[in-house]
Amino acid sequence: MSASFPTAAASPVAAAAPALRVRDLSVRFGGHLAVSSVDLDVPAGRISGLIGPNGAGKTTTFNAICGVITPTSGQVELGGDDVSKLSTHQRARRGIGRTFQRLEVFSSLSVRDNVRVGLEIRQSWSRRRAAAPQFLAGGAELSADDEVALIIDRLGLVEVAEVPVGSLPTGQARKVELGRALAARPSVLLLDEPASGLDEQESVEFGALLGTLAASGLAILLVEHDIALVMRVCSELSVLNFGQLIAHGTPEQVQSNAAVLDAYLGGGGNDATAVERAAVDAGVNVSDTSWSGPGAPS
């Protein structure tokens, strides 16, 4: 795939080779293995979800993929090319875009300027006039100003376009981050909790927007706590726990996976003996420490 990957060109079906392929990725912080041997395939034209409890290593995985931290081991391939040795900005030029869990907006600039900076940075290294992405004006050629205006419009930020991002509520600032990333025209988009701060209605609209983006050929990897949104938009899910992949599959498969439920509610399910022993030691009378679903007899 070419570096700037004109997203309009790729059809969702032609995703035989994944746009982003991660192999055996491990990140160690001191003695703590934050990410352990993770494999991910993110195909173009689809939304893949990466979920897991707090501290499972999702953001660390993102950081390693885009080169913000150096992994202990592992490979990151983009459109078939190994980018593991490249710096953050070089990877970005190869087509990785992202948003951040903790906002990294340009808070003293207006919404319009945030998006514009994304576009201008792309123009500073890419002289080529690629067609605009499919989701904007159907891929027609656009002037820079029009492209910025369209992105702002698509994200529903028109009313706040001239407001400094530092004074926006989190939900809107997250959209600004997304718009800025889109202005750089990535082929792979990593989204770290983009929907936190949106209400239910906005979340539905946001899901539809993600769908449009994916349909235009973008490969999206989504980390999100809004499970309803994840289940709705993702075509496949990977579940991370303690830095390891514990499940992978369609949302339906993952939802009924016992290990996943354990990961979310606590690890008593597979080996409860220690807890029970502790409970008995403590003189607490607990009849059943293993989890039972809602409505199940306890």
């Binding site: 501290g55 303690f242 690890g267 008593g268 080996d271 220690a274 807890v275 022993r277 502790a278």
Partner: peptide, 18 residues
């Protein structure tokens, strides 16, 4: 328990109980 394997968590909570 944050970021720890289930068995380790159990061990730690055993101690909390004590």
């Amino acid at each position: 328990s944050m970021g720890l394997a289930p068995l380790v968590v159990e061990e730690l909570y055993g101690i909390v109980a004590q």
